[in-house]
Nucleic acid binder design. Structure first.
Lengths: 157, 157
DNA sequence: GTATTTGCAAAAGCTTTGCTGCAAC
DNA sequence: GTTGCAGCAAAGCTTTTGCAAATAC
């Protein structure tokens, strides 16, 4: 176990009915070393409970999203139109997705916090969700094959 | 005509073959008073050229996106999984979408520009696209029906 | 004249839904 | 015991693709 089950505890605290499927899904999201889309989440969760259905995955995602317990990402649609999920943390972070190699890096900054405050204050806008996603070329890809962006496509497959 | 055809001119400058369909689509995006999704763009563009096909819309969007001439938005998926498009402007802006009434407000800030610089510098990341989307409650909805968030759902239908 | 683009129609990909039986409290 | 949830399968919505005919330069 990589950390204590914050998400699970929080779900429980909110009075969410904890079925065995939800438990498996929540634990899967919490333990995932990378961002999972619905299909990947289903596959991973089935290792804990083989009978989980796709519909349950989507319904649980929806529930957790509405409760503000998880956030939804696109990762700039670098690999299709899927959505990815992660536990919402107290400090929002930025996702940098490399359009060449697909690597995702997270980044936090006090400047981002300040910007959030400014957005809320100047627009009198009550922020519920915020998502800052960046697409571009990571330092590794920029360094390795400067003029040769084709190969990386094959490398991702 | 609301402004001069910047997008059209830019497309031409890049050597994009300007077919009549592309012209109609580009002009439609440029003149739209709101953010259009693919279906709405198709419907609007057909007023200029009734024979335009859905496939052409998607192919043109793809082309313009790859050229960095338009940006793609989700508007926090407040109305389903569509994507919305807008002309890319020199100054990136933030989209605030009200989850109650669906209103979209744009916002720019020097702080956002500074944050972009910081992201690029600290991660040695070559930013190609950046998208900051915010979901929450706009001041109008907060003021009008503070404790009664149910009705607005019906109002949007 | 030649390379690109279009329209059409079919399919693909991701997500949602109705309904019956089952599980949590 | 009651209320809400899960599984199944089918449909929904948005987007993509193959191919022959049409179009731009």
């Amino acid at each position: 176990m990589r950390h204590r089950r914050k998400l699970l505890a929080e779900a429980q605290a909110r009075g969410i009915r904890l079925t065995s499927q939800r438990r498996a899904l929540i634990e899967t999201i919490e333990d995932a070393p990378r961002h999972l889309d619905a299909a990947a989440l289903l596959a991973e969760a089935r290792k804990r409970d083989p009978d989980i259905d796709r519909a349950t995955v989507y319904r649980t995602i929806d529930l957790l999203k509405k409760q503000g317990l998880i956030d939804e990402l696109d990762l700039m649609h670098v690999e299709g139109e899927k959505h990815y999920y992660e536990v919402r943390s107290s400090r929002d972070h930025i996702h940098l997705t490399c359009v060449e190699c697909g690597a995702v890096k997270e980044f936090t900054s006090p400047l981002f916090e300040r910007l959030k405050e400014e957005i809320a204050r100047q627009n009198r806008f009550d922020i519920k969700v915020i998502r800052l996603e960046v697409g571009g070329r990571c330092s590794r890809c920029a360094g390795e094959h400067k003029a040769e962006s084709e190969r990386s496509h094959a490398a991702r497959a």
